[in-house]
Design a protein around this nucleic acid. Structure first.
Lengths: 321, 321
DNA sequence: GTGAAAGCGCTAACAC
DNA sequence: GTGTTAGCGCTTTCAC
């Protein structure tokens, strides 16, 4: 059953396609009588305006996109869902794209860019070169959890400050030997957390440990911990909760008593008793959608920057209280 | 900076728009020399074909959609991500839509239907009437985790059988008094789980408990448990992990010793030691994308049905082993 | 208030 | 091999 077009509705209602368009979109320039007739015809034909035709004529997509790196873990899902919720509130549909492991990630992002009125791009998804290229086309953009690119809006969550607080807390427990699991090179978030740790240690006259490069998933954390636990430090700071939970499992297996902290405050962290840092992930996504909406309506003169607050969540994994 | 059109590329390369189209889409009917010239012109202009124009001309969107009810919890996120991964593999973009709490959910789904070549619709999102209406337009559809609708593909996960196994396991622990938290009326999944519990109890000459209606989130589970724990049964079967984890928290608070089970095997379940049932959520989404792809290419004569296997995951929350 | 007609940017017949 | 041209379905002037 082919979808009905505006022509068929027009014919059935005995009017022109222009009138159908006006009637259905609530234009003032139509008698209520004609409008009713058109509505009836449209209903009978189950008419829904073809989106491509409409977009082409209007010159806009009424859709926004979000690009994120990974399919794994609750973190990105939360951001995406916050984004969707806000975008839907503005009447925009949402296109999602996960890039990691796709050899053609840049192409996929370019293609996506052609389907939307605005795009949110998260860290670890595609390089700054691609971001700059797309920004140059004039497409409204907002960067999430990644370093700013000239002229583009950026929203991040606080890393350094809270990492320092976290470190202070661990120092308060009396720990003096630390390990950091995560690769500062791989992500600005991780870099910020490591920097906060280093700064706080330095403030106490302690040297920062060499970071132990480690993927941001549970299994990577567990494996990295297996080695580390042969000669365990007093405290292990994971770059995120999944890593920390992996360490937690390894420590349980090895019956090792070591303080562990994470980052993100996943639901699982609560049940593992993991000391961690809560991030407003949903709000991160929602703010992105809102900024994009504003930028599409009226580009602000200057690119905006925002750092959302994060909060230390102390549980039992960092030691007795 | 306005996006370049095919006309500008054509002019710059000194060819017709048809040649540009052919050259860029890899048609055989173009000299390598012209192709190179066109490519160069396109690159200089940062040309990306306008998606609406292309869709309109091709009569397809090269995009699929997925509709799910809620923004909360890892369950839906997993399904969506499985869907996205598979759809991207087929060259389809993915549009997502969360319906719950939106008064205009049906309209949003209709609108989405007009943007895609195929649509996956999950349980609890919109009613069967909307599904039937959209199915009638001929749009390829696949239903996820919900009761079948005439003529439409459906994929579910096994509930009854595994719920019975779970119940047998609890009976094996010696428990004879049970409570079920969840509303069978609200979801076919919950209904199936309750039915499996009832059947297994009946097989042992036991009456099924009245289900305790309860939302599918942690807080609902916790609140429902608060009442229940005044006169606790030996075992509490939660309709999903979030509910069960809520019960778990309530039981900890009340220092109540009661067996608890969930459903979904969230990451948190592992750390709470929750006995639960693992569902192939990612595969659920991926299968949906695959079926949609197949149905768009060539509609199968009969609607397909599939029930994906689920697996009992025994941990400590159901008692000592 | 309503209709005719000109695009929006692209693909694909059809000519040459 | 390449160009011309007719749509794809819709919105929106411009006439009447």
């Amino acid at each position: 059953m082919k979808a009905a077009t505006i022509y068929e509705v027009a014919q059935r209602a005995g009017v022109s396609i222009a009138t159908v368009s006006r009637a259905l979109r609530g234009s003032e320039l139509v008698t209520e009588a004609t409008r009713a007739r058109v509505r009836a015809a449209a209903a009978e034909l189950r008419f829904t305006p073809n989106r491509s035709g409409r977009s082409l004529a209007e010159g806009r997509h009424a859709a926004n996109g979000i690009v994120f790196p990974e399919l794994v873990g609750p973190y990105y899902a939360e951001v995406v869902l916050g984004y969707e919720e806000a975008a839907a509130g503005f009447g925009s549909s949402v296109l999602i794209l996960a890039t990691l492991r796709r050899p053609d990630a840049a192409d996929a992002v370019r293609e996506l860019a052609g389907r939307v009125d605005g795009l949110a791009i998260m860290g670890q998804s595609v390089g700054d070169d691609v971001v700059e290229e797309i920004a140059a086309t004039g497409l409204p953009l907002v960067l999430l959890a990644r370093d700013p690119v000239s002229g583009v809006d950026t929203i991040r969550t606080r890393n350094e400050g809270t990492a320092a607080s976290l470190t202070e807390h661990l120092l308060g427990h009396g720990y003096r030997s630390f390990a950091f699991l995560g690769d500062p090179e791989a992500s600005p978030d991780v870099a910020g957390r490591y920097a906060g740790l280093s700064a706080a240690l330095a403030a106490h006259g302690l040297d920062a440990p060499q970071p132990v490069p480690c993927g941001l998933d549970l299994e990577s954390g567990r494996k990295a911990a297996l080695k580390l636990l042969r000669d365990p430090p007093e405290a292990i700071v994971g770059a995120n909760d999944e890593v920390a939970l992996g360490v937690h499992l390894a420590a349980l297996d090895a019956s090792a008593a070591v303080a562990i902290t994470g980052w993100d405050d996943l639901l699982a962290a609560r049940f593992a008793g993991l000391t961690t840092v809560a991030q407003p992930m949903r709000e991160l996504g929602a703010t992105a959608a809102r900024w994009l909406h504003e930028r599409i309506a009226a580009p602000p003169p200057k690119p905006r920057r925002r750092v959302l607050p994060t909060q230390l969540v102390v549980r039992s994994s960092c030691g007795e209280h």
